[in-house]
Design a protein around this nucleic acid. Structure first.
Lengths: 403, 403
DNA sequence: GTAATAAGTCAAGACAATTGACTTAATAAG
DNA sequence: CTTATTAAGTCAATTGTCTTGACTTATTAC
């Protein structure tokens, strides 16, 4: 009678969607190219000078862009470049890791203004939530002390934690943070902060960070191979983070190394967890990061052995990523100590032959990314900023225009 | 002085982009849900009744949709459903394979109206081009004989051939159609037919076909694992075919099976090419398809051995695809004989544990797709239709609105 | 000093979605 | 059988946003 299966359709768009898109395109252009004149923007975006003028005026009113000194370049009226105003927007980024949680406040151009961290008590979410909310509140108030009106310009809170999310058979895998996985984190954070909250896995956050201020800046197709406690890939496809059906795309750590089905996942061989095991050290040791950095610098034998073994697997991972995603470049990043990452990169080369070997390449196939303990938190913060200001298909649709 | 590096920016949009998007959204909704009333469309797309009415009127004038018998469903004025008109648009699909080329004419809803094939002479593009252009011309004129005004409603020619495209080191790989790779195929086809021409690899074409009329219908995230002469994956991500930087995304056939770097690519073990080699048969034999189908049905020992071996690799490939892309489902399709594909599917199960194992799954992790020698040509034709009528980000941008 | 060039503004116009009142056509209820 | 209710769909005016073409401003080239 009433055939009640729901009708599936994509959302339409309207004038506001058009306008929202064009605003985002301007911001994106300024982010990629630096300050530009309205005439340049008009040419680059294919919009008319008039439209660009109107949008820039509006963005200036909103405090997102500002004019700079006029520049003369040949004949004609000098142009007035407009650039992004760093203080135009802020976001809080939160990294929840095994033994520690970090929070940062980041501005529109990706500068970290405030950073703070706390140890996470072993009790899981029940006790951890308090610590996290306090940390976020602290960062938020420090930000408010540095810049005025920061609360008004806060676009959201981005959280990052190790994935995968919501997987059925994960209970018996000691590498995962099971209790956190089951916890209604988004709701708790949202209720506890009153902010829009987004969640991504740590590799995705690293990719988001690289896209905003790192090696993937301005690229539309880039994959970040993130070596942390686990290992994952953050996917920038078509200029946007790709999340997959359940936000688990890129979980390369769970990829099996051999086709026979009896092998171990990549994560057990090329990750900090595997290094800690190899070295028989306690992952909870707060000085571990520095100690491993020292050891790596000194050319420690045990570390060397792990690096050589991991490099084999990473080389294969990069080959696989190139083969499946055909990106412009692969970026190796991680929360690993810097010295370790550079040893890894050295040990990985030369890369395996792949479809990425083309005549006329300009970008290197593999680039080092950030190797900074704070990069995941930065990427977590970059998430809300990207959602708010970067051009994306979803942003033109009516069902995303409530704000 | 004049800093002449080009300014990179995304294109803006305007009213026409809005309108184009909304038209596409309507068509997409009708394709996924079947005929719908204007009121239903308005609710589903979040547009107003009035807007929907205007767009539908325009689409009806353009011959893309038509009204059906009014239906009463409870109180209120009966609704008038509108459905896609199959004859609203056509496309030609062309498959270029090693020893044969196939062409089809397909309508708006993906029905194949005309099909024809020719053997490809071994001389490569120099002699093959003539054969192909004749084939296309034949299909085109047969289409014109069946439906009126077909030429006016022809949106383009889609070509599909084995990838990868434009790769540097490919010269020494006997599995590739090297001469065709180097040939300016798009230009030649475009000049020879006067049509808009698109090119994708055969796995991408298979995925496009599955999306239009097969197991991926209405899905936003699906991966087609295509077993043909080679093996590749066609990627539907965010509701659109993902091509990567150079159209080579998904070339899983080139993935190495072991991390040690000395192993063979997947293609050498799980593809029809590997089967032919295993059986020591001539790939150019025109009756091969039927013969292998017979052998598979009879439970031939040699085929069984290959199936068992290939299934191991395919099981791993599916695991890998699930791990990296997090799709709603994986579809196994191919130009392989149907009996062979069903034996493969039987031998592949059960699947390896992966992030795809979730509570609340509704779709199977692995589904059989089309196993039809014509499915690649169909997918090739579906390409231009999708580009012309499906909602996509690129379609709203000013730089895509010249047509 | 004048012409050429380019940036940017102004005001009117065009386009497409929105709004709110209205019409039409059916069923449910009394 | 009549009337109220509900839902589909239309009409006409309005709104929001980009476009158009003429104009102004500021600079360099000749």
């Amino acid at each position: 009678m009433n055939d009640s299966r729901p009708i599936r359709a994509k959302s339409g768009t309207n004038h506001e969607g058009t306008s929202a898109h064009n605003r985002r395109v301007m911001i994106d252009a300024l982010r990629i190219n630096g300050a530009l004149s309205r005439a340049d923007l008009a040419r680059a975006t294919r919009l008319t000078k008039q439209t660009v003028s109107n949008i820039i005026e509006e963005l200036e009113r909103d405090g997102l862009v500002s004019s700079q000194e006029a520049v003369r370049k040949g004949r004609g009226q000098p142009s007035t470049p407009y650039g992004l105003v760093p203080e135009g927007a802020f976001a809080i980024g939160l990294q929840i890791d095994r033994h520690v949680t970090r929070a940062v406040a980041v501005d529109l151009v990706g500068s970290v203004l405030v950073r703070d961290e706390s140890g996470l008590p072993p009790g899981g979410p029940s006790s951890g939530t308090r610590v996290i909310l306090d940390l976020v509140a602290g960062v938020r108030s420090k930000l408010a002390g540095i810049v005025q009106q920061s609360e008004k310009r806060l676009v959201g809170l981005g959280a990052a934690m190790p994935g995968p999310f919501g997987v059925a058979g994960s209970g018996d895998d000691p590498w995962m943070m099971e209790a956190w996985q089951k916890f209604p984190l988004l709701e708790t954070l949202s209720a506890g902060t009153g902010l829009d909250v987004g969640l991504q896995n740590d590799a995705a956050a690293a990719a988001t960070a690289e896209r905003m201020v790192g090696a993937a800046h301005g690229l539309d197709h880039a994959v970040c191979l993130f070596v942390g406690y686990g290992i994952g890939a953050g996917l920038i496809l078509n200029g946007d983070l790709y999340r997959g059906t359940n936000g688990n795309a890129g979980e390369i750590g769970m990829a099996l190394l051999f086709a026979d089905g009896k092998s171990t996942p990549l994560e057990h061989r090329a990750s900090l967890a595997s290094l800690y095991q190899h070295l028989s050290v306690d992952p909870a040791d707060p000085h571990l990061h520095a100690r491993i950095n020292d050891l790596a610098l000194k050319g420690d034998q045990s570390i060397h052995a792990w690096v050589e073994a991991a490099a084999v697997d990473l080389r294969w991972s990069i080959h696989l990523i190139e083969t499946l995603f055909d990106p412009q470049t692969v970026i190796l990043c991680g929360s690993a100590p810097e010295a370790l990452v550079s040893r890894l990169i050295a040990a990985i080369g030369p890369l395996l032959p792949s479809i990425a070997e083309r005549r006329g390449r300009t970008l290197p196939r593999l680039q080092p990314g950030m190797a900074d303990p704070w990069s995941v938190a930065l990427g977590a913060a970059a998430g809300p900023i990207s959602r708010a200001f970067d051009p994306r298909f979803a942003a033109i649709l009516k069902d995303s225009l409530q704000s």
